[in-house]
Nucleic acid binder design. Structure first.
Lengths: 228, 228
DNA sequence: GTCTATATCGGGATAGAC
DNA sequence: GTCTATCCCGATATAGAC
């Protein structure tokens, strides 16, 4: 949503929003151009006036969605702070993107299930930026001795997985037979993910020592950032 | 796979396997009956001889998939042990299902993204069994004072989310341009999820005390468990 | 149980007027 | 930029012979 192309007519904008919603709800194969047009209150021919094909429209939406996440997490890194604070910010950035763009969680989940079938070079670049930012944060934390060394993707899955499942099932759970079991707040899941991620990254305690406290007194942190 | 219906001809069995693979790879909308028939080395008419419709075939596969998970986690609970050991077993049960049935992770992810569009009563019952088992384990842990009280679904998402993302992207990552960044082992992700889940469930430290250790409960693990 | 047609229709994409 | 009308392929499902 950040870097819009020069063409931004009113109908084109509605078309993008309608397509994002339709693709999120039905997936690429399940979506129909007729419904996209209908949602946008536009005729089907207009879809093909603005976009060359259903696939191209989908890829454009996919790219902007991932670009949106990438920018948010990049902003977190640039804001600086301790590795723990940056990781918490990373988690919040993902969560806020899911709130700001409700079409994002289902779309992301589908792409994963599809094995990235529609991921082209430009989309891949955006996803790489996200993992790249996380990698830098983790590297700082390892260097400072506050994070255990772990493959960035493992940490990424640990953060993104719960958030996506929670966000994607939100409207589903809301419409359920009022099972109180399924009523969970956004805050509780976000807090749990943050707690899990930080605790899971805490360095292994040196076997003999009396429980080193990996906590707050590491405030004196490196200010170095921005390497890409 | 556990509770097979009485009809189990050879072609019917191949059909089920082929359909599971096709649905996992393309989703319900993206799958075609032609390709399912072709995968099973059977004509399309045979599909409609054995199953009333594409949708019915899909629902049957969905039901068996979730039944398979439900039984594995139920077995863990029946095996007993400390709450922590049972939770670790729960995680492993999910992971082992993903290994034994590679079609499962993508299919689950798609159902979530679809908002449970194809989930009927029988499927819902199986998923409820899984959450039910987890709820019991968590309740035991709370009663014993070793788990902090958390909504079961929050914990469920924290466990299942990372495992599904990891499993669903496995073949994708294997076929990537050899980015060493993306080479992560099944063990590392399983270990991380276990560490995160247990650490995230550790009770909050009593405010006044000087850094209680949420690390010492590891001693109470390693008890009896089995895998089906 | 297994096959070869075939009916039928939804949906992506285009033509061409205005 | 926007519309109506249409082309046409592919996909679900069925008919009916063997």
């Amino acid at each position: 949503m950040v870097s819009q192309s020069p063409r931004a007519s009113a109908s084109r904008a509605r078309l993008r929003a309608a397509a994002a919603a339709e693709f999120a709800a039905r997936g690429f194969a399940g979506a129909t151009v007729d419904r996209i047009a209908s949602r946008a209150r536009v005729t089907k021919a207009m879809v093909y006036y603005h976009f060359p094909s259903k696939a191209a429209l989908y890829r454009e939406i996919l790219r902007d969605l991932f670009a949106s996440v990438a920018e948010r997490v990049a902003a977190v890194r640039e804001a600086g702070g301790s590795p723990q604070a940056q990781l918490a910010g990373f988690i919040r950035a993902i969560n806020e993107t899911a709130l700001a763009e409700p079409t994002f969680p289902p779309t992301w989940l589908r792409e994963i299930a599809d094995g990235g079938r529609h991921v082209d070079e430009s989309v891949l670049r955006q996803t790489a930026r996200v993992v790249g930012t996380l990698t830098e944060i983790l590297h700082d934390g390892e260097a400072a001795g506050v994070f255990r060394p772990l493959p960035p993707l493992v940490v990424q899955f640990g953060i993104v997985g719960p958030l996506l499942l929670s966000a994607a099932t939100e409207s589903l759970r809301a419409n359920l037979p009022a099972l109180p079991l399924y009523k969970i707040s956004r805050e509780s899941i976000a807090a749990h993910v943050e707690r899990m991620a930080l605790a899971g990254l805490a360095p292994a305690a040196p076997a003999g020592a009396g429980l080193a406290a990996p906590d707050a007194e590491k405030a004196s942190r490196s200010k170095s950032r921005r390497s890409s």
